[in-house]
Design a protein around this nucleic acid. Structure first.
Lengths: 340, 340
DNA sequence: GCCTGGCACTCTGTGCGTGCGAGTGCCAGC
DNA sequence: GCTGGCACTCGCACGCACAGAGTGCCAGGC
């Protein structure tokens, strides 16, 4: 039906105008700026219907219309074309990320890059431990009954734990222990590491068995837990741009939620590298994020998601542009980490 | 002179009242809330002198007085007594920091604790590499001509670098290389590590010499540079509390400066563990921090500063309380890291 | 049947004048 | 050298009217 189509066209125009101007948009301005082929009066009728259907709303009687969460949702799902990145942007991504010296550096650059490209708050998750594999395990003798266990994953992540042994540890046994652990765990995914422990205990020489048990249990307890997921956050200064307009109360709860990394990590839980996930306003099911949108995607290869990254901003954001940026950065980071 | 003393007393009262109420304070309110023993009219005379001397100022003609940077400076230097922490606060510090599993965890907890105690933005610097000593060096064979070098310091910091070798590396040479490096560098401060390189090269067996040279130069180049200093930041949500009142423009430049870690690191450069450093407003010599104060102190033992930590907030802050909190936390962190 | 122009209506934001209150500076007196 | 009194200066909140934007509705035209 031509009717419905034009109505959607009106919605698209409203979203686009509102995102770029930050003013509630009225029928007259809409008719002027877009080639809808009808008069303001007709647009008004369409708007009335859109409002009744819950896609737009007016802040007060004599103001223009503003998209609702539902309106943005429809826009994202059906009305927005994927906006390809400009050549300059693509080049910026490469220039920014090449030359990183280690994982920490890669993720730090990524978060800055993403914040800069989208002008929003960027969040990047460290490669999930449980999805990573062991590249190397290092054991260092720190004190009589204290060892330092260092785990290096295939994604370049390094984690360390102090292991308290109930008995004194012979320093000379450490190299042997190291070899043993590495031959057992090297290349094994951390999620599967638990399965290797019984075998390892059985084959370990008797004088090392106690030690191996202690070390393995530390490894399992602390390193495999999902609580070990980490997050890098950047670009919070971008929140202070249109603040009063974009975030009704203050932006304080939002900043708190971001620092409370758990909140973001939970959202990240569902990412996958093939599709960009968009959560709009109330869809986030978290008070502090109820007037914010979250655009995220997984990074890594399609077979293996390593982690997620994304941006947080006002619901009034450039979805096509941000989705494109998030996806492009994730792809590049994925390649970068696959190489190393 | 009794005169001057009372005048200082008036300044102290002004600072205290202004910090707690956030309203410019007038002569009448001052006479009511403080036992100065004189009438408002007399206080007015004192205030006029204080204003002429540049310690206070009035936002507009018919408002009360507000301390200037210079006024706060005098207050901090001469008028404020060290405020001992409450028992509850001391206990909170212990409860918060005990049970940390590694350095990352310790610093993460520290920054949250500090932000919570002071209700300001907290910054904590990682132990400076150059002041740390090598606990262990680990070499992992990653690919034919690529090694991963992992440095573990005595403060528990772990850093990693990829080393590209111009020639292929024999995997069997790696354990030998590891032993060699550790015997040369173990216990050596990173600042002094450079001196050990010539010796090391001389004593190294000829078939390893090239490799040792490559690895050592990577170590020197990247790990000893001060650019490798890291920072943890937390409590930015506290900025959004009295924002409009505390930070004239917006808080955006401040957030940007904080993310630009270099700015804060430069301020941290001067810390030492024995004295709490306070920089007030314009003293910070950085645009974005010109309406903020920075309270910092070094942590570590008195012989050896490991790094710095501190808080950033509006010049209108509780200096005695914040100085006490910063110092107490630094002491505790210092002990914690000295132990491990 | 749908679109259009016209019109009355509603509402917000703004500019202006006013009164109030807080706070000051100054002066004369103790 | 302190104090009470007094005139003065502003900023701020309030009330009010007005202009402008935007809407909904209706009658007429294609």
């Amino acid at each position: 039906m031509a009717h419905d189509e034009r109505r959607l066209e009106v919605l698209r125009a409203i979203v686009q105008d509102y995102v770029s101007t930050n003013d509630p948009v009225g029928s007259k301005a809409l008719a002027e700026r877009h080639d809808l082929g009808v008069s303001p009066a007709t647009i008004r009728n369409d708007m009335a219907v859109l409002e009744e259907q819950g896609y737009i709303t007016q802040p007060h009687t004599s103001a223009g219309r503003v998209p609702t969460d539902k309106g943005y949702r429809l826009f994202v799902d059906r009305l927005s074309a994927v906006k390809p990145l400009s050549v300059a942007e693509r080049r910026a991504i490469e220039r920014f990320l090449d030359g990183a010296v280690d994982l920490h550096d890669v993720l730090g650059r990524t978060v800055r890059l993403l914040a800069q490209l989208t002008r929003q708050v960027a969040v990047v998750q460290y490669p999930t431990l449980s999805r990573s594999a062991v590249r190397h395990l290092e054991v260092v003798h720190v004190a009589a009954s204290r060892l330092l266990l260092v785990l290096i994953t295939d994604t370049g992540r390094v984690e360390q734990r102090v292991v308290e042994s109930p008995v004194e540890v012979d320093p000379d046994a450490v190299p042997e222990l190291r070899t043993l652990l590495n031959s057992a765990f090297s290349g094994v995914k951390l999620a599967d590491a638990g399965d290797k422990v019984p075998d390892l205990l059985e084959t370990a020489p008797s004088h090392l068995r106690g030690l191996v048990a202690t070390v393995s249990s530390t490894l399992m307890e602390t390193l495999v837990e999902p609580s070990e997921d980490r997050l890098v956050i950047g670009g919070t200064a971008n929140l202070a741009r249109g603040s009063a307009l974009d975030f009704p109360g203050t932006m304080r709860p939002l900043l708190e939620a971001l620092e409370e990394q758990v909140v973001v990590l939970r959202l990240m839980g569902e990412v996958d590298p093939t599709t960009v996930l968009v959560r709009i306003g109330e869809e986030n099911a978290h008070e502090a994020l109820s007037s914010a949108s979250f655009v995220s995607v997984g990074y890594g290869s399609s077979e293996r998601a390593l982690g997620g990254l994304g941006i947080v901003g006002p619901t009034r954001m450039d979805y096509p542009g941000n989705m494109a940026a998030v996806r492009a950065v994730a792809r590049y980071v994925g390649h970068l980490l696959a190489e190393s």
